[in-house]
C-alpha cells in the first residue's frame, strides 16, 4: 500500500502545483496546458481508486474535448499567445481569503468525520457494471442528458454563430 500512497502523494503534489499555475499564470495557453496536467492527474486518481471507466472517460472527454474547446475559445477570442498582463483582477487578496476560509471549513468538516476511514483494498469496477447501472437505474437521467446535450448544441450554435 505504500507504493499507492507514494504515487498518490506525488500525483497530488503535481496536481496542486498545476492547479495553482492554472489560476496564476499570465499566459492563456499555458493555463490550458496546465489544466491538462490537472485533468490527467484526476484521471490518474480515478485509476488509483479503481474507477477505470471513469478514468478513461475523463481522458477522452476532458483532455480530448473540453481542453480543445477551451483552446479554440482562446484562439477565437484573440487572446495573445504570449504573456498577458491583463488576465487578473486587481484585487486578489479577497479571493484568496475567501478560498482559504472555504478550505478551512471544508477541511475541518472532512477531517472531523473521515479521520480514520480506510478505503477498501481491491475494488476495481469494470465498464459493464457501470453501463448496467446506467441503463437500469439511471435510464431517465441518461435520456435527459442526451436531450440536454442536443439542446446545448443547438443553443450554443444559435448563440455563437455570426448572423
Amino acid at each position: 500500500m505504500v507504493a499507492q500512497n507514494v504515487f498518490f502523494g506525488i500525483m497530488a503534489l503535481i496536481m496542486i502545483c498545476a492547479a495553482l499555475k492554472v489560476v496564476r499564470t499570465k499566459n492563456v495557453v499555458h493555463a490550458a496546458l496546465w489544466l491538462v496536467v490537472v485533468l490527467g492527474g484526476v484521471a490518474g486518481q480515478f485509476l488509483l481508486l479503481g474507477a477505470e471507466f471513469v478514468g478513461v472517460t475523463q481522458v477522452l472527454v476532458y483532455i480530448g474535448a473540453v481542453v480543445v474547446l477551451l483552446l479554440f475559445g482562446v484562439m477565437l477570442t484573440k487572446a495573445s499567445l504570449g504573456e498577458e498582463a491583463d488576465l487578473n483582477m486587481p484585487n486578489r487578496t479577497l479571493p484568496a481569503i475567501i478560498a482559504a476560509l472555504m478550505f478551512g471549513v471544508m477541511t475541518y468538516a472532512l477531517i472531523d468525520t473521515f479521520r480514520d476511514t480506510e478505503l477498501p483494498r481491491e475494488s476495481v469496477t469494470n465498464a459493464a457494471t457501470v453501463s448496467d447501472s446506467i441503463f437500469a437505474d439511471y435510464i431517465v437521467p441518461f435520456e435527459a442528458v442526451s436531450v440536454l446535450l442536443l439542446a446545448a448544441l443547438i443553443g450554443a450554435v444559435v448563440v455563437a454563430r455570426k448572423e
Binding site: V23, V28, M106
Partner: peptide, 18 residues
C-alpha cells in the same frame, strides 16, 4: 477540497472569461 478552493480562487481572481 484543495482543487475546489483553488478553483474558487480562480473564478474570483481571473477576469478573462476563458
Amino acid at each position: 477540497s484543495v482543487l475546489f478552493c483553488i478553483g474558487i480562487y480562480g473564478v474570483l481572481a481571473r477576469k478573462n472569461g476563458v
